[in-house]
Design a protein around this nucleic acid. Structure first.
Lengths: 366, 366
DNA sequence: ACGGGCAGAGTAAGCGCTTACCGTTATCGA
DNA sequence: TCGATAACGGTAAGCGCTTACTCTGCCCGT
């Protein structure tokens, strides 16, 4: 009952290939890695054996020997705030994190790296355990916003290369982000100066998110410069999600409080919730209230009116994160502790401008 | 210049931990794995050493020794048809594949597995190389639709466990998909029987996609039963993307050909392109032409009118794929060669019904 | 009081690969 | 023709972990 049909059912190793090709395992390895060229004839024999056997070299063994796994760990936060219906699925597909990941992958691919992905959700008691697991399986980590506490980051960063996205920079990790302050400044000025709106609110994201903090500060500075009052505070606290934006507006309306002339949302998702709720109550955007987002996620163009927002080079953010991490892994030394990418204002209809841009796929047609 | 500050800059190993705790590496390993309980005192010493050192066990070594990596490879297709502007980014974020991946992750997490992700794009000359690389780094593969030819699947499946999503089943792999035929039948009947539309077209997806084939066939069967003619063929060939749907409608309009009363799109993305183009030409949906999709991706609810479509349990599809793969990996023997999940009709406005459902986040509010 | 039994902990043998090191053979110059 | 030289290719030593096997010392029964 050992070898039912003559062939060993064991996993195929380099030894099997070597035997079949009539060479040593060293030669097989050399052929597989394109090292100092074995003779063409030998090479052919090995290749033939590999093909016939359908041999796939074991990544773990390879990694162990090379001290390089060619895997980058990516951890991002899952935005499900409702534990009960984790499977009702098809919520707002995350978009922002997804696009960043695409960028990371694009960068990784050029170096032959693959992505090991993991998510952390709000209820995770010890993200540390998950992250340690990922760290052990990869050569370095890219941590999205809000996945690990600053102390946690410092801790893991002294054992493995770490790049954070929109997080706090630490002595041992590098931070890659886009220029929130400049973007928000530009956006707010557009609303207050170009449109001249008299009142404006900032609908915040997670209070402990560095991105949110930077945006809020920039917003307040501009509003202060203009000399009007910023509507912020407890009442205007969202959570980066459509539900959060919707709830804030609902509360305000229920309590019969006034709305500002313009609402600057912490991100696009929030703006979606805001616009929906306003529309539901018969409040017109942008005629009655102007709304803006931040990020320029793909759906921003499908809203009515289309969303004016601040575009982050989302994909590039990911690609850059990988590049930085790669240089740390390959020991080219740690680069700067921070890389900041520029943002750009995207004017569409929701701020009050008369623009209607075509969807992206329109442009690419003949 | 060897050890600048006394401490060895080598990577930390289990030996370091053992030395520090004053025990053998075997004990450290046992503590780390919760095996036949070492004495509590010893246990504590080891744990302390691990904590102090910030030790992270190497996944590769572990995998090599255990013959189990606790990693599942996931390969999906990137839908960028434009090689030139690969970095103009922020295209239609893929959604469908993303949601499936979420499901896979949810399943994987319960078993302590992580996801190794890789994409293949249309121009990939040899997806085989990429897939082999992933295969070597994981315990099994989940292949999305359209990432590898049937022969390729067969080849890789005889060396590693493989589950395909919406692909052709092969003797050595298992296929997980949703019931395209039933869903399309229901959808088509709704249009032809409930609404009584006299003419209807099927706007196809990739011709070589098994999903598309199944949907097209079901569509034609129903249309045949009703006794009217199906509008299909060369003219109605899309590519699962908004651009494809838009192009088909544009061509028809340019050539002054008539439109059917209803258009059944191969998927939601296609429907988006169709609805946009119709609107642009002043054709009203659903008053002039009814449109339906397939999948029920999140944006389907943000369209105007909201899209009537056939919901696939997308996330569950992923979770199921993992479960099946896991049973193959853990050697519980290969289960059935196919698992089919049920679909359900989602009636919204685009088919002509008077329904306006609230966005998902609306329901979850207090 | 002595030997059997047992629990806790250590030793060492791999897991499948890469590669430094070295033996072998062919090649070339004198 | 013979030794030097290079080019191939084989042998074996790890990479960092798990675990079978073994050893030590202790507790217990008789």
């Amino acid at each position: 009952m050992e070898t039912p049909d003559g062939g060993p059912p064991r996993t195929l190793t380099i030894y099997d290939v070597a035997r079949r090709a009539g060479v040593s395992i060293a030669s097989v390895s050399r052929v597989l890695n394109g090292r100092n060229s074995p003779r063409p004839e030998t090479r052919e024999r090995v290749l033939a054996a590999v093909r016939e056997l359908g041999f796939v070299p074991d990544g773990a063994a390879r990694a162990l020997s090379n001290r390089l796994k060619e895997v980058v760990g990516v951890v991002f936060r899952r935005t499900s705030d409702m534990p009960d219906d984790a499977f009702s699925d098809e919520e707002e597909s995350l978009l922002f994190a997804d696009v960043i990941n695409r960028g990371i992958e694009a960068g990784a691919r050029t170096r032959g790296f693959d992505l090991l992905m993991s998510t952390v959700d709000v209820f995770d008691h010890s993200p540390h355990a998950r992250i340690t697991s990922i760290a052990g399986k990869s050569d370095g980590l890219i941590l999205h916003d809000q996945v690990l506490s600053p102390v946690g980051i410092v801790r893991v960063a002294q054992r493995t290369p770490v790049v954070t996205l929109a997080g706090t920079p630490t002595p041992s990790s590098v931070n890659v982000r886009s220029d929130n302050a400049a973007g928000m400044r530009e956006l707010t000025k557009h609303l207050l100066v170009d449109h001249g709106y008299p009142t404006v609110a900032y609908l915040a994201g997670h209070v402990d998110s560095p991105d949110n903090v930077a945006r809020a500060e920039a917003f307040e500075v501009v509003v202060g410069e203009i000399g009007i009052e910023a509507w912020t505070g407890e009442l205007w606290r969202g959570n980066y999600m459509a539900a959060g934006g919707a709830k804030v507006i609902r509360d305000i309306l229920h309590r019969n409080l006034p709305l500002p002339r313009a609402i600057v949302c912490a991100n696009d998702q929030t703006a979606i919730g805001v616009m929906y709720t306003l529309a539901k109550h018969g409040i017109r955007v942008p005629q009655d209230v102007a709304v803006t987002g931040f990020d320029d996620i793909p759906v921003a163009r499908h809203l009515h009116p289309q969303l004016t927002t601040c575009r982050q080079p989302i994909q590039k953010l990911g690609a850059t994160a990988f590049d930085v991490l790669y240089s740390m892994i390959s020991g080219e030394g740690k680069p700067d502790t921070e890389v900041v990418l520029p943002t750009s204002l995207v004017i569409r209809g929701s701020c009050g401008c008369q623009v209607e841009s075509a969807p992206p796929w329109e442009a690419s047609l003949g």
